[in-house]
Design a binder for these strands. Structure first.
Lengths: 339, 339
DNA sequence: CCGACCGAGTGAACCGGTTCAGTGAGCCGG
DNA sequence: CCGGCTCACTGAACCGGTTCACTCGGTCGG
């Protein structure tokens, strides 16, 4: 019971392979009667095109790739990626394109993966996440002529199209909100400085702090993990005077910070306001619920996938700006009660 | 600047395509001198085999597939899958096999994906997760002759190899531990009853409760999500008399339950003990830290991937039992203080 | 009535590997 | 000195599609 090929269909229909190919792909060259007959036979035989044969023949892999280089324990619990993938899949589902997913230990492993994929023609294009400052991957992919869409930007993406949201505006919104609540000493617990979005947010944070004449507004870095978020928070809350508001770069560290505040007897939000970033389900998992910056990650993913398919098809693809991230206030922020 | 093919190498080396193929694949048929020359030229040209051509020629896709059918919002935050994937990748990394990942909305979409993958020969085998009671996918995959390894079991997997851990033993361990702490009214907040592991755990729970003569030991079902976990917990804690210990089927619902207890003024662990399942990073994210059942999910994934590669290669693959899941006591369980 | 044209369909090449039957040279033993 | 064997390598078929140049028969305009 070999899988049927177009040759089987051709034999059954009494026509040539070429005619079958035309019929199945909806191109001219066969009469409607013949096309119908061929389609019926293909259906009856349960035929589906061999992805390998098609890939070899038309030079297209029928897959796009996503590599994520973050430590496994961060990936496991960081909801961002699964939501992103969910968005990507919603665009790919049903279509002829599959998603090849790879986790890499570090940047070197990630670039090696791109090289291999390009050399093996395993994917038609890739989605680039966690854009870095002067990201070497941008030049690499450009050099490999591998179509790519960057999730992030818009700076430093070179000629690659990107889908980005205005992080700076969101940072400004959060800071204005906290200042309105009476806060004057803010600290940002940011992700690693090498990420482009970290740099963008840090710059915006410094700028708005200057504009508003804040007493203190520093940025410290952590690696997005629960452990590092807790460690940094412990240090920050031990300082005298301590900050009255903490802005985290992801929900995970913010939730860890919430736990540390509780452990150190710092009341949230009476003495300390905490803000996360991403609006994942984690925010509603904890008490008080976490105030956070909300962006539609799923839609981000869908948008990026759509753009990548267009880029693979060869069209010019303009970068797109996603709807701005917005503050979602919950119980973890409030007016300062005991300054 | 076309990518080099073996024909290019053959021309440069002054030999035939066949000789190049033998040389590159380390098979006999070429002298060591010639092999060295061909290898050097291939290296210099930056040659890598076209995955499509190889797939077409040897009938192997060079990829394995994983489909996950859970609601997107559960997937986003449920750490289990990312850890599993991380384990799978650790086995695949560097090798010639890629991972094709798909999220499906429901079981029907999932089976449709298997059919399509099989028809298109897009993957050489698949990993099956979330085994169900009388799982239709087992027969489907067997019928499609698509190699598969089940993560779960060992019951109901038919002829498919599986990697499983002894959930029943873990349930018994947890219940004995809680009883030793003085608990007599336990409730299990389980996953959907259609999952095989849910059924196995429920059966073990009922059995050990009978053996120990517990006052109460019921199982209720939820869908693994934060919301459902919270909803069910609210209902359970409102009952009179309420259970003194809750056993959840994943950490996510357990953490949600912890939040509800706090919201309802039920002290943990003084009045209520809470146990999760999986030992994800979530457990150490909350206060009190969550007692949970720990199993090495990453290793599970690696094991399954290794078995799948063996199955694809055609060898007979015996099912494997992973090290038993073990109780990891933390702050959320303790002796009953105010019964 | 003849040439141009058009639609339907054919046959073969091609994509880039793998594999198999065959070939010629060199070596060995008898 | 010759038959047979091994080794190194060649040429072609093959995997399952797509595509292109070409043929054949019918129709239409002049």
């Amino acid at each position: 019971m070999r899988r049927p090929t177009i040759a089987d269909i051709a034999r059954a229909a009494g026509v040539s392979k070429g005619a079958v190919s035309y019929a199945l792909n909806g191109r001219p060259g066969v009469s409607e009667a013949t096309r119908g007959r061929i389609l019926a036979i293909a259906e009856e035989l349960g035929w589906a095109p061999s992805s390998a044969a098609r890939a070899l023949s038309d030079g297209r892999a029928g897959a796009v790739g996503l590599v994520v280089a973050r430590p496994a324990d961060v990936l496991g619990i960081e909801p961002f990626f699964m939501r992103l993938i969910s968005g990507i899949q919603s665009e790919l589902a049903g279509g002829p394109t599959a998603l090849t997913f790879q986790m890499a230990g570090d940047l070197a492993a990630e670039t090696a993966t791109y090289r291999r994929w390009a050399a093996e023609r395993r994917v038609d294009g890739v989605l680039l996440v966690d854009l870095r400052v002067r990201d070497p991957r941008v030049d690499l992919l450009t050099g490999l002529a591998l179509p790519a869409v960057v999730i992030g930007g818009p700076d430093g993406v070179g000629a690659l199209p990107c889908v980005w949201s205005d992080d700076a505006a969101a940072v400004r919104e959060v800071v204005h909100y906290l200042v309105a609540l009476g806060h004057r000493r803010l600290t940002r617990v940011a992700g690693p400085p090498e990420f482009a979005h970290t740099a963008a947010r840090s710059a915006a944070f410094a700028e708005v702090a200057r504009e508003l004449g804040l007493e203190r507004a520093e940025t410290v870095h952590a690696d997005y993990s629960v452990e590092d978020g807790a460690r940094v928070t412990r240090r920050l809350l031990a300082a005298v005077p301590r900050p009255t508001a903490l802005l985290y770069d992801n929900d995970l560290m913010a939730v860890a910070g919430l736990g540390v505040a509780q452990e150190m007897g710092v009341a949230v939000p009476a003495e300390l306001s905490v803000v996360g970033w991403d609006d994942s389900a984690l925010c509603r998992l904890v008490r008080p619920a976490l105030t956070t910056v909300s962006r539609d990650v799923v839609r981000h993913g869908a948008e990026a996938a759509r753009m990548l398919l267009a880029a693979v098809a060869g069209g010019p693809v303009p970068s797109r700006r996603a709807p701005a991230a917005a503050l979602r206030p919950r119980g973890s922020t409030g007016p300062l009660e005991r300054p």
